[in-house]
Each structure stands twice: as C-alpha cells, then as structure tokens.
Computed example of a mutant assay.
Amino acid sequence: MLPYSFLPSMAAEKLRNAADKIKALLHDYDAIHVRRGDKIKTRKDRFGVVRSLHPHLDRDTRPEFILRRIQKWVLPGRTLFIASNERTPGFFSPLSVRYKLAYSSNFSHILDPVIENNYQLFMIERLVMMGATTFIRTFKENDTSLSLTDDPKKNTKAWQIPVYTLDGEGS
C-alpha cells in the first residue's frame, strides 16, 4: 500500500491545482472523511436478524457522535472540511453548532470545470484532506491515526448486529 505522501504525485496537474485553490480558500482548517453509504450496508441472517460488517459505523458517523468524538482533536470555531458519501442533504448541519463547515460542493466554481467523474472528485478531496491541520479518518488505519470509529476498516466477513444507541446497546 502506498503512503499518503505519494498521493500528490499521482494526481493529474489540473486536480492538484484545483485542490491547491480550495486549500488556499480554506486557509487553516481541519478535515474529516465520513464514509457512510456503502459501508453501512446490512443484511438479514437466516434467522431474520439484521447484521453489518461495521456494527458501530452508522452510530459513530452520525453528527451527535462525531461532535463528541472529535471535540478533543478539533477546537470549537475551526473550519471543518467534510468529505463524505452521505447523500442526505443537511445531514452534517448539527456540526455547525461548534464548527464552520465546508464541503467540496462549496467550491463548485473551482471543481465544475475540472471534474469529469467521482474518482477525480475523490482525488481532490483526498488532497484537500491531506492539507488539513488535523485529519480524522472514518476507520482507524494505524495506532496514531485519528478515526471516527474503532470498527476495523478491513472486511472481516464477521457480520454483527448493528449498534445504534448512545449507551452502546443494540436498538
């Protein structure tokens, strides 16, 4: 697996330039990558019990949990760049009680002329996240990385009952 530091050299110049423009506008900011949609997938086992490969992910990537998790890493009032595959409009709005929120969609004047597909958007978002003062991933990738959930990133094939409540018990 290539290190994150290798990523800028892999991106096309037009993507690197777009990311640089966004980073300049954000100035001093923090970033979170919130992987939801595809990773929250559930299925029923043969007994009809709903199970997930990432049992805490839905809970851990909701705004109220994000606020609690990142408060020790990101000071109130900071600009927080959010990259996510969450499709619900306004989903992360509750974070605005503590942070100034920024999304790639805020920079459509920069992105629209250069983005041709979601992979290019993802690359620009990765470059922007790498430029953040504090970068918080969805999944913990190593002992020093900051993450929204402690669920393993790798597919363990162990389908578990999802956890949705604040106290850690199943719903």
Rank of each mutant, 00 (worst) to 15 (best):
residue 51 R to S: 01
residue 72 K to M: 08
residue 18 A to R: 02
residue 52 S to E: 07
residue 49 V to T: 12
residue 92 F to L: 06
residue 79 T to R: 14
residue 67 L to I: 03
residue 43 R to L: 09
residue 86 E to C: 03
residue 54 H to V: 00
residue 35 R to K: 10
residue 24 A to R: 15
residue 105 S to Q: 14
residue 65 F to W: 13
residue 72 K to P: 02
residue 84 S to P: 05
residue 49 V to L: 09
residue 51 R to Y: 03
residue 101 L to F: 01
residue 58 D to Q: 11
residue 102 A to E: 08
residue 30 D to V: 10
residue 58 D to R: 14
residue 29 Y to G: 02
residue 88 T to F: 10
residue 91 F to T: 08
residue 93 S to P: 07
residue 69 R to G: 03
residue 25 L to I: 14
residue 85 N to G: 02
residue 75 L to N: 12
residue 43 R to M: 08
residue 103 Y to F: 15
residue 19 A to L: 07
residue 59 R to W: 01
residue 35 R to A: 07
residue 107 F to Q: 03
residue 27 H to D: 15
residue 75 L to I: 06
residue 106 N to Q: 14
residue 18 A to S: 07
residue 87 R to F: 10
residue 21 K to A: 11
residue 28 D to Q: 13
residue 96 S to F: 03
residue 29 Y to M: 03
residue 102 A to L: 11
residue 52 S to M: 07
residue 106 N to Y: 09
residue 78 R to Y: 02
residue 62 R to Y: 05
residue 44 K to M: 10
residue 38 D to N: 13
residue 61 T to F: 00
residue 88 T to Y: 10
residue 100 K to N: 11
residue 74 V to F: 05
residue 64 E to S: 12
residue 84 S to V: 04
residue 101 L to H: 04
residue 82 I to E: 00
residue 38 D to A: 11
residue 44 K to C: 12
residue 57 L to W: 00
residue 15 L to T: 08
residue 45 D to T: 05
residue 82 I to H: 01
residue 89 P to W: 08
residue 86 E to I: 08
residue 107 F to V: 02
residue 91 F to W: 10
residue 45 D to I: 04
residue 63 P to I: 03
residue 92 F to T: 05
residue 18 A to N: 04
